[in-house]
Design a protein around this nucleic acid. Structure first.
Lengths: 241, 241
DNA sequence: GTTTGTGAACCACTTCACAGCC
DNA sequence: GGCTGTGAAGTGGTTCACAAAC
């Protein structure tokens, strides 16, 4: 796990041997979103204090996080919105295109397929798969639904960077295996089950029922004795190299 | 924030002055799900090793996590599935009923409203709200869609424990404020924006575009220099008292 | 005066390793 | 012999507090 640093072929700015903590990576998209809004509002400069407030974190964390990308602020002034925005975009890989496949077009998969806000930053749905033969051939927003078994064939011609799993729990692992077999190296799992992937494949999950149960835990703690109450802030998530 | 422990009115088993780490709370639902499956398969006993494997964590973590609930295992044997299941359920508050309201019935809200798997463990959708007057009156799965402004009136008669926000980012904070005003103390936010809540209100978020950007980060790191690669495991989340 | 960038202190969680119990 | 429960050690992340730069 102690892999050497990649030198990176920077096109600009002072490079540095950075290894970005996982918790920081998880916050960069939040900063980015806020910066995009600020830019839209014509704001050109922002302090760590102000950015922190907008993102629901504290200023020291913002400064520490941003320092991992390099030194893009100006003491006594703050950060230049446009510059910072560009740096974070580049760091997150949003300057390139990420073709997405969604597998499973039930309620959730359908909603995701229709979701606007993907294409915004390089994410683009290019393929849809479903196990139900009756659904194959149907189109959502112009993209045809294909049979799951076509998965391996298709990726040969149409590269897919990210696979979204929105199938029932019982078949989620199998679908993950097929995606990986087809060369997909990043998976976002919405199925309410644990799936495992080999080294070199990135996996993240979104689990509605886990979230509700966590809320339930803190709700319960709040009422009975009521001594313990609280704000449940959403925190960092891991990501290993 | 150093609130005293609530004494709790246990109906069974040896109580202990437990304060459960947030990271542990976030994993309990995963253990629970696995235990339910094991019970369904007729398994009566499980070791930390086996449970860990099924849940994608390591055995030491399982043991440490479970030790926070009390001492429910037997050395040399393992954990009794039924007992452990009951303890975790109770700890998570799943023995009671949690009425849910969904605000916003676009693609996502609609999918959530139709989602089976809520009622499984005490979660029950009891109210739906949308800002679009044309939609008000429509029913999803028997539940009528109400106008958002009815929110405060309704909760007086129909208590709501958890509010799910599935509205556009621009109005998410406002909806959160209304929910809180109406007495809701737990919120699950699907809108792609940061919302803030006062002390005593629990908040968790699910943000699709943040997840995609995190995957993008690790995908990009994998290719260019390729020295850095990896498995991005989903980790703990915070929750404060 | 203002605000960044960062060592140092602090804190939470994870992992190790083993004593204690079956 | 097998497996839990847990102190102790290790790791990663947050917060503090301040020197450096504007």
């Amino acid at each position: 796990m102690a892999a050497p640093l990649s030198p990176r072929q920077d096109g600009a700015a002072g490079t540095r041997p950075r290894r970005i903590p996982e918790a920081t990576v998880a916050r960069l998209p939040v900063y980015l979103r806020s910066l995009v809004e600020l830019e839209g509002a014509g704001v050109t400069t922002v302090s760590s204090e102000r950015l922190a407030e907008r993102c629901g974190v504290n200023a020291a964390k913002v400064r520490k996080d941003l320092s991992h990308l390099g030194s893009y602020g100006t003491r006594g002034v703050g950060y230049e919105v446009g510059l910072l925005l560009a740096q974070i975009s580049r760091e997150l890989g949003l300057t390139q295109d990420w073709p997405i496949a969604i597998v499973g077009l039930g309620n959730l998969g359908h909603a995701l397929a229709n979701y606007r806000g993907f294409e915004a930053r390089g994410f683009r749905i290019v393929a849809l798969f479903d196990a139900d033969p009756a659904r194959v051939g149907e189109r959502i927003d112009g993209i045809p639904i294909r049979a799951v078994h076509e998965l391996s064939d298709l990726t040969a011609t149409l590269p897919i960077a990210i696979g979204i799993i929105a199938v029932p729990a019982a078949v989620a692992q199998q679908v993950a295996d097929q995606l990986i077999e087809a060369g997909v190296r990043s998976i976002l799992n919405f199925a309410p089950t644990v799936i495992t992937v080999p080294d070199g494949v990135s996996l993240r999950k979104v689990d509605l029922s886990v979230e509700l149960q966590i809320l339930s835990f803190y709700s319960q703690r709040r009422e009975p004795g009521d001594a313990d109450a609280g704000d449940v802030e959403d925190g960092a998530r891991e990501a290993s190299a």
